[in-house]
Write a protein that binds this DNA or RNA. Structure first.
Length: 275
DNA sequence: TTGGTTGTTCGTTC
DNA sequence: TGAACGAACAACCA
């Protein structure tokens, strides 16, 4: 489930090899995930690689940004001779021969090939996606005061507010859960009922878990053993605070991690220390 | 075989 | 008006 740190990791990898390369051809294997027409970037060279929230953007200049949304199961794999760069949702495709039966779009560059894979067909590729216009600020671009302004009046559970992309961009289920744990805040608490100290702790907690996610190259998934074996994936999953830890002892040592559904999403917290 | 899982989109309600 | 909420979407896996 790629979130901000996972996409940032992909961005940092791809910009090392993609900048300056010309996009020679695009092969669409599954039109379902392609929004609009991609032809206008054919023949253009990559100027830079960007990220906005959970969206990866390849900048071809001339106001042409090729956007990718990974949703839950999207991944990008770049191959250049023997070299391979992988990112996004970890599956066996990280080490399989490309294209696989999950490959949806193939981008042929000068020196290598970029494969956009997605098991569940929820992701999308689009030039100048309107979605990014609606995004709120990046977590790292706001200070604590601005953070409080953005969330303090909302009458819905704080965890769901953290995940609203038009409030703050890039925070998904994993990091929202862990940020609440860092701040000792119950994810159900309505945002407008938090104390000043809780707002402050939540801001710091959110930044901390996102920074750590980037530091460890993102989370892949708790069950992605083969990624560790091949050393290809991130390791934030080894540092989850509460996410995916149902039934385990709280890392603060007094309480058991509970799981419940909030806004239709799996939510993890320690009833002892998160109030 | 069926239910759980996920982020965004979209429709409904207040 | 806009905020809150919940179903829908697709496909894999336990």
């Amino acid at each position: 489930m790629p979130e901000l740190p996972e996409i940032e990791t992909v961005k940092l990898q791809l910009e090392k090899i993609l900048i300056g390369q010309k996009l020679k051809d695009i092969k669409i294997l599954s039109g379902k995930i392609v929004r609009g027409n991609l032809d206008s970037v054919k023949g253009k060279s990559v100027k830079s690689v960007k990220r906005m929230g959970k969206v990866l953007l390849i900048d071809f200049g001339s106001d042409l940004l090729l956007g990718f949304h990974f949703k839950m199961t999207g991944q990008l794999i770049y191959e250049d001779g023997g070299k391979r760069i992988v990112g996004g949702h970890p599956t066996e495709d990280f080490v399989n021969k490309m294209p696989s039966n999950h490959t949806r779009v193939i981008f042929n560059f000068d020196k290598g090939t970029l494969y956009f894979n997605d098991q569940r067909l929820f992701g999308w590729v689009e030039i100048n996606p309107k979605f990014v216009d609606k995004l709120g600020p990046e977590p790292f671009e706001i200070d604590e005061k601005k953070f409080v302004e953005l969330v303090c009046k909302r009458k819905k559970p704080i965890k769901l507010v953290l995940m609203e992309q038009d409030v703050i961009s890039g925070v998904g289920n994993i990091y929202a859960n862990d940020a609440c744990w860092e701040a000792k805040v119950n994810p159900r608490r309505l945002a407008n009922t938090l104390t000043a100290k809780q707002f402050s702790d939540l801001y710091k907690g959110m930044i901390k878990v996102l920074e750590e996610g980037i530091k460890y190259g993102g989370a892949t998934a708790a069950d992605a053993k083969y990624i560790d074996l091949h050393g290809l994936g991130g390791h934030y999953q080894d540092h989850f605070r509460v996410y995916d830890r149902e039934g385990e002892e709280c890392l603060r040592g007094d309480g058991i991690v509970h799981k419940f559904v909030l806004g239709g999403r799996g939510t993890y917290y320690c009833p002892k220390c998160q109030v």
